[in-house]
Design a protein around this nucleic acid. Sequence first.
DNA 1: TAGATAAACTGGTAATACCACTTATCTCCT
DNA 2: AGGAGATAAGTGGTATTACCAGTTTATCTA
Lengths: 237, 237
Amino acid sequence: MANGEKPASMILFEEMLDRIRTGQWPVGSRIPSERVLMAEFGHSRVTIREALSMLRALGILSISQGKASVVQKMDAKLLGRLFPLMLSLEGERTYQQIFEVRLSIESRTAYLAALNRTKQDIDELERVLAILKSHLAQNIEQSLESDLRFHIRIAKASGNPLFPLLLEALSGFVAYVQFLSCKGDQVRRERALHFHESIVQAIRDQDPERARVEMESHLRTSADRMLKSGLLKKNSQ
Amino acid sequence: MANGEKPASMILFEEMLDRIRTGQWPVGSRIPSERVLMAEFGHSRVTIREALSMLRALGILSISQGKASVVQKMDAKLLGRLFPLMLSLEGERTYQQIFEVRLSIESRTAYLAALNRTKQDIDELERVLAILKSHLAQNIEQSLESDLRFHIRIAKASGNPLFPLLLEALSGFVAYVQFLSCKGDQVRRERALHFHESIVQAIRDQDPERARVEMESHLRTSADRMLKSGLLKKNSQ
DNA sequence: TAGATAAACTGGTAATACCACTTATCTCCT
DNA sequence: AGGAGATAAGTGGTATTACCAGTTTATCTA
């Protein structure tokens, strides 16, 4: 016989999650202390703490000793952490696989961005582009981070919040590979910058088809470099 | 001053996760009892249980009273549960958003499936198609489930395991919407079936471009029906 | 009034006991 | 000897108590 009874800690977990969802516990606010929750929910402290641990595992709750626990913004960074974590449990992902997904998504984000971009989007993209340029000769980590921000900013300009979310989730994989592709090679980074500028130009001109083509060229060029480097089969995580 | 010290429960959580990752605790196996883990890790039962609760929250561990806890396969179904859960915390998702993501992904899976499909893929697709046909006049839930399976099977045929994973993750959203789109309208389901057959045919013929076009037509047609139904703005979750 | 001190919070861990449920074992009856 | 039921052992679930370790707040002192 299946045991349908859910443990109290599970119920509390869902109930607390619901409080966060409904705004009863707003993002950024400090939730009541464990002693208070004990009385409120009518359960012992261990049960309360187990429920809180679950929320913590999902990154929804920030808990640290001495301080009150605060509700975290459920942004894409969390997804970016959990996504690779989960995928790592069923086989390794290759760069080829990541690339294909990025291509399918980003060719679309570029297209939609050109269609839906606002003046504010353009300004933002220019800004990120400037940062990208300034980081060209600097350290690699910053340069890669800026590059990722650039692509995510385009996804944001698409008007569909799911796209930047997905990209951020995938970024848990791409980081290392991007690092390899740009490592110590300033010429490559300059070439990538040129592509970035072309993409922004197409988005500014509201030319979806050109934006798509430029984005695909950019990604394909990066992928080809990986191939030549013989690092294609390298696992990304 | 930031408190860099991680609580023991957190450390144990990561350590247990690592044991699962490395295969020390294989998927499907039963992990030691809490009393044993107490001795092994040298911590009290509450600490052990808090770590276990975190694994449970992620769906990695199946825990039920009386029975030993077993390591769960970290498949896409879990992602499908967690994904919408997380997204639900930052604004609602509309059908339009889901549709755009599906279009970007599935136009690519159809294309790749036509390129990389094996004979076994074709057989499987035929089988799913037959099931789909047999469910045409039957209850809606089964029909929708089969439809989802069909699309995921195509993604699988692409050869890139990330695609079916993403689709399954998105399915947490589409279910309700698909339900609406097909609800009580057998004519629509028959038309969808026709599209499905065309897609399979293109994949069988190894005609990537045609497969892509057919898939896009299929999805766009479904989306248009949603528009006409006035349900476009309806939240999917 | 400013700084140091102390009290009152917060979460983290441990130990113990008991309950609820499942599984394995044993015993007894046929 | 074999099967069915009772029994015992093992599992997770919860509660209680106590104390530790940080943080914040209030208080007192210089």
